[in-house]
């Protein structure tokens, strides 16, 4: 398994953020999922810590956030999406263009 350089290289630090605040079209790695029931529902759809996701869009008026995980779109309610912590990937990250996921 590959070891991925954490994103604190010469490009500067990437700020951890939430799925809700991630820019559209941006890729990121999941750092933490919320706990409890919503975690189980997210896990069932293939979201786990360490997974790569791409944000597609966020709907206005606290509408849901749509992301792509393993090539599949998933919509997540606004409140939960604000509790999913992610680390945005840098453009030069070696995984940026790849659909491969990385096991934690």
């Amino acid at each position: 398994m590959l070891h991925v350089a954490s994103c604190e290289d010469e490009m500067g630090k990437t700020q951890k953020t939430s799925l809700k605040d991630l820019e559209n079209g941006r890729k990121a790695r999941i750092v933490t999922l919320p706990s409890g029931e919503s975690r189980r529902r997210l896990e069932a759809l293939g979201l786990r810590e360490g997974k790569l996701v791409e944000k597609v869009s966020g709907m206005p008026f606290h509408g849901p956030v749509t992301i792509i995980v393993d090539g599949r779109q998933i919509a997540i309610g606004w409140r939960i999406s604000s509790r999913v912590e992610v680390e945005p990937l840098l453009e030069n990250d070696l995984h940026y263009d790849s659909l491969e996921k990385e096991e934690p």
Binding site: S38, R72, Q73, A75, G77
Partner: peptide, 8 residues
Amino acid sequence: ELIVEIPP
């Protein structure tokens, strides 16, 4: 909250 897969 909504958590749903959007199939292709």
